[in-house]
Design a protein around this nucleic acid. Structure first.
Ligand SMILES: [Mn+2]
Ligand SMILES: [Mn+2]
Ligand SMILES: [Zn+2]
Ligand SMILES: [Zn+2]
Lengths: 145, 145
DNA sequence: ATATTATCGAGAATGAGTCTCAATTGCTAT
DNA sequence: ATAGCAATTGAGACTCATTCTCGATAATAT
């Protein structure tokens, strides 16, 4: 599997855009760890690495990363978007605990099949899906209000 | 099945809140048709019916309708939330066309089972789920950019 | 080297949603 | 009915995420 930096460079080249240090620093930071994150966190992490990249550039680059498919919008929480990098990872969905707000990832083959079947039934060409299951995690069961 | 207005009144009473004309007008408008909608549209429709209810009250009431379970947040599009009423309707999910942005509703029993199974595997008490399948509708297949 | 064009950063602008607070309304007890 | 009181409303101020503007800067092409 090609490293993400190459995918990104090709994506940019294909759009006639430049691979700048800012864009590459942002890409690197996004792939530096595997947690969900928001733009504010990302800016902080860049800063801690001595990178001083403007908010506008970070937002602009996030849009490119999403468009390229390297990164995905996961959910809106606390009024702003959260992301995760997806390139190089198997597709997964999320269980969300309504008690402690914890998010758990899971993979499920049967789900992918059901999704394909639903697409076929509607003559849709399916390119992806997003499933969130809500409920209460083992720790929060029982004490839910 | 109880009419939604009764459900809402009981919900409000249970919280020690009043069933005001504004709240009831909003509820009525939300259940007046079955499309997805956003707050701006709702305010417009209320206006066309001669109701002049403040933006703040509409937002406040939407929060109550969601809390009561009569209404659901469906998705964020164009930077703001979209809703649908769900009381009195079977649970359904959405297919979203990335070409024309059309949204198609579907029901699927197998999906509900898979969801339960995933919950069980993680010892989650599942209360709901939201699935969106992305792709291209029959009209948009082929001409996707 | 010079011209051209993309990109950047700073900060202004936008827009959804929330908050504040004075005026109003709807209950409840006289 | 009337008075007292708490809940609610509406207008507009406010917040905060995200986008836009535009002059300065950097990368590429001639
Ligand atoms: Mn994830
Ligand atoms: Mn729907
Ligand atoms: Zn929990
Ligand atoms: Zn379509």
């Amino acid at each position: 599997m090609k490293p993400e930096i190459d995918v990104f460079r090709e994506f940019l080249a294909h759009k006639g855009m430049r691979a700048t240090p800012e864009r590459e620093a942002i890409l690197a930071e996004v792939f530096a760890n595997h947690d969900h994150f928001d733009v504010e966190e990302l800016i902080m992490r860049l800063r801690q690495n001595g990178q001083r990249i403007s908010r506008a550039s970070v937002y602009r680059t996030m849009a490119l990363l999403v468009e390229s498919g390297l990164v995905q919008e996961v959910y809106v929480e606390d009024g702003h978007m959260h992301y995760e990098h997806v390139y190089g990872h198997e597709h997964h969905c999320h269980l969300r605990c309504l008690g402690c707000r914890k998010i758990i990832e899971f993979r499920n083959g049967a789900l992918e099949e059901v999704e394909q079947r639903i697409g076929r039934d509607h003559r849709f060409e399916v390119t992806g899906h997003k499933l969130e299951i809500y409920g209460y995690c083992p720790e929060c069961r029982g004490q839910k209000k």
